[in-house]
Design a protein around this nucleic acid. Sequence first.
RNA 1: GGCGCGGUGGCGGAGUGGUUACGCAGAGGACUGCAAAUCCUUGUACACGGGUUCGAAUCCCGUCCGCGCCUCCA
Length: 446
Amino acid sequence: MALHLYDTLSRAKRPFEPLDPARVRLYVCGPTVYNTAHVGNARPVVVFDVLFRLLRHHYGPAHVTYARNITDIDDKIIDAAAAEGVPIDTIAARYTELYHRDMDALGALRPSLEPRATAHLDAMAAMITRLIDGGHAYEAEGHVLFHVPSMADYGALSHRSRDEQVAGARVEVAPFKRDPADFVLWKPSAADQPGWDSPWGRGRPGWHLECSAMIEAHLGQTIDIHAGGQDLIFPHHENEIAQSACCHGGAPLARYWLHNGYLLSGGEKMSKSLGNFHTVHALLDDHPGEAIRLALLSARYRQPLDFTPDLIRDQKRRLDRWYRTTADVAAADTVPASVIAALDDDLNTPAAISALEDLAPADLKAGAQFLGLLGQDADAWFKGGGGAGGEAQGPSPDRIDALIEERRAARKARDFARADQIRDELAGQGVRLLDRPDGSTDWERS
RNA sequence: GGCGCGGUGGCGGAGUGGUUACGCAGAGGACUGCAAAUCCUUGUACACGGGUUCGAAUCCCGUCCGCGCCUCCA
């Protein structure tokens, strides 16, 4: 079966056919860099990283362009900068770096392009001008607003009529809006806020605009796949569609819309406002990045996933087992067909993982590496505590070797009480001893 | 109120008209001084009530329960 993807717009699993197989284009909504990422933020990064790898497999690495933006102008960034008394660039640069570090640790490939909003003010302004000229936007009290009724099929992605949205709206409607659903393209900046000069005065762009402008600038009018979290369906992606289509004579922004489900914590959506989240950075102190990655891939990307310590531990053990069985084996040259077949079915990563369990070590290694796993030497994995946090904790290798030698002598003298005491002591420090059939003893950090 | 997702064995989680998912945990066995690791064997399931069908966890209707979006949010 060829690659099929579930498309939110048509609400159906459809065969994937790129507009141009020589230039497959994928865009994923990236972070607003005002604080550290939590695992919920990492889910789209990891699952769409698998999609990126799969597209590269099918079309060739040179023929896939993956863009993921950095939102580096936003009121939350402005607030964070003001709180510290530093320029917004300082905040944005700091959290961009942390984001990269965390996502690297989860085994996500860097995207081909990582456009930043503040580098595309001209493109956004040009888009606003076209929208005004086309009768889709208007100026009001220093703002420029997109006029939603000017677009006939607004709401197609979220399958909501404009009336329904207005009826359920819990947001206060600014008095200068011609229609309650109208949204901001440009807003004025106070003297103490960052701003850019524009035909509509000094100000800054609305959130939705950057994606439309950067997609147009780097990927063209219509891309193949636009992806992000489910909470972006409305209003963010709906508004992107409106802006882009109205600038491009109705040409669709993307041909496939993919949305990942939420991570749950205690049965509820993990979110910053509820405070029930873990930052990736904090999790990396206790767990290897690969275990977190495998945990994120252990359920289908559209399903909710309860992210618990037990889940990560289970996946860590699975990786331990895989590292053992593949320790002295070279990865096969080709990615196993069963793994590709599972992923081709709308990124069925649990089925792909199950397929791996069925494979010979060389194929298992090739398949797991394709998924961004088993990326290190087995010895490094075990001796380094599974890569948790980078540095090993507990007794030094020399100390462990000395204790193993002492235990060997004790066993030879049949002093099993002392031998077991040493083993228990090491176990208490996270070191597991493995007695080999040949009489030697190896060790792992667990 | 509108729109949408889901309820699978002790747990996590695929499948979605007929055939073992898979993993963890449990039980039994091999190995071991005893363990660990590994290997072998093994039990347990489709929220509830109707309907369609030769056959339904899978399709249809209804009920109950959980969750999400409609507001910044992956």
